[in-house]
Design a protein around this nucleic acid. Structure first.
Lengths: 216, 216
DNA sequence: CGTAAAGTTGATACTTATCAAACTTTGTGG
DNA sequence: CCACAAAGTTTGATAAGTATCAACTTTACG
């Protein structure tokens, strides 16, 4: 893998790392910082199709299909490990184990998108937001970025809205609900989860509340 | 590829080919017939995460991650080409170009899910339905299944609803709108598009067509 | 001919979007 | 250090889009 690596790249906040439709000659791995993947629709709206956390691979579609199918943007300052796309062939020829790893990454990304699709398509607002926050909390904790129930979350409310198919205003009000319920606090680019259990409870699709049966 | 193939399998309509969570030892390619991929949420609702048309690969997640992340069901009678999962590793070792092809398939599936996510998250009902029908029409036409502007479409309205995150009733009324507008007719498991231009117009594009696999 | 599955329709309730405006925070230059 | 601009957050009022419910029709089939 050492020979595969080409160099490192620093991306400033707000920078577009890869553009949809681009056929860049490079692939990346995120070393530090966070970013997001998104698509722009014809009507100007944006769909966030993924959040990039440290360790995530970037540009696989480009590497394998010759063109990016979504744009990638740095949310915070990011350090990227740069690979050369042209060396991808060599990897498939000479390092089947790593080639398999790449396929595994692709399949994993597909899996994550499937989960998001189910959340966006079938959950209601509160559940969507709770689900996403819970996901962040879990993933970031697994990355060792949890300090006193607080994980870094440098995104904006608009990002969450665009990810879950909600309007900014509705997302804001939903976040307020979770905050007032004392479940989470999201401020200063950090998410603090006071009641992990309740968050997880909201995150699982509870659906409609069962109409309470009158006590006779 | 010949040695890779294990045999053929016939799946009857309504049959579950692969179950979410299952770690079957087989992979498939759809030769004839159609099916769909779906996830079940905790509250019982269903999210369709993909439609399987002739030529589609089934079970890649299982092959590469050891477990299916969604279920696969035959909608019509299907003929499946069966592969053995255990031979996957041989393929990666000895046939790098086919291994690359598999990765390409995985990346393509990710791409399709991204498109669906954008549609489900950011479109309104009429646009969602028009987008999906337009997608069927385009893909099936590309498969040579178009006869006089009519393509086979053996799914039920519930499937479209579960794919686009709509209720059955709303989907029904939306379909009625497209029908009354003289744009499409969907009856007897066949979709006839009378005004391809108007259908495409309603289906605000999220991106481009599925790219064909590049020659290595 | 009875039954089950799928499609249709109208009435109603709820969720979410949109609009508009105020407020807060942050960064920048005078 | 303050004024100002820009970006982000918050809130209330209202409109639009969808879900839900319930009944009815049509079709397929043993």
């Amino acid at each position: 893998m050492t020979g595969f690596k080409t160099g490192e790249l620093i991306a400033q906040p707000g920078t577009e790392i890869l553009a949809e439709g681009a056929s860049a000659s490079q692939l990346f791995t995120a070393l530090h910082g966070m970013g997001l993947r998104y698509k722009l629709l014809q009507d100007g709206s944006r769909q966030v199709v993924g959040f990039i956390l440290p360790g995530d691979f970037i540009g696989l579609q480009n590497g394998v299909m010759g063109e990016m199918k979504h744009s990638v943007e740095a949310t915070t300052r990011m350090t990227l490990c740069v690979f050369n796309r042209s060396e991808l062939w060599d990897l498939f020829r000479n390092q089947p184990q790593r080639a398999f790893g790449l396929t595994h990454i692709a399949a994993s990304e597909e899996f994550v998108l499937g989960e998001m699709l189910a959340a966006v398509g079938r959950m209601e607002g509160l559940t969507k937001v709770a689900w996403l926050l819970n996901r962040f909390f879990t993933r970031l904790t697994a990355l060792g970025l949890n300090e006193n129930d607080r994980v870094p979350l440098p995104y904006r409310q608009q990002d969450i809205a665009d990810a879950m198919g909600l309007s900014l205003v509705h997302t804001n009000k939903t976040l307020a609900k979770l905050r007032r319920a004392g479940i989470v606090t999201w401020a200063d680019d950090g998410l603090t989860v006071h009641r992990p259990d309740q968050l997880a409870e909201h995150a699982v699709s509870v659906g409609k509340e069962i109409p309470s049966r009158p006590l006779i």
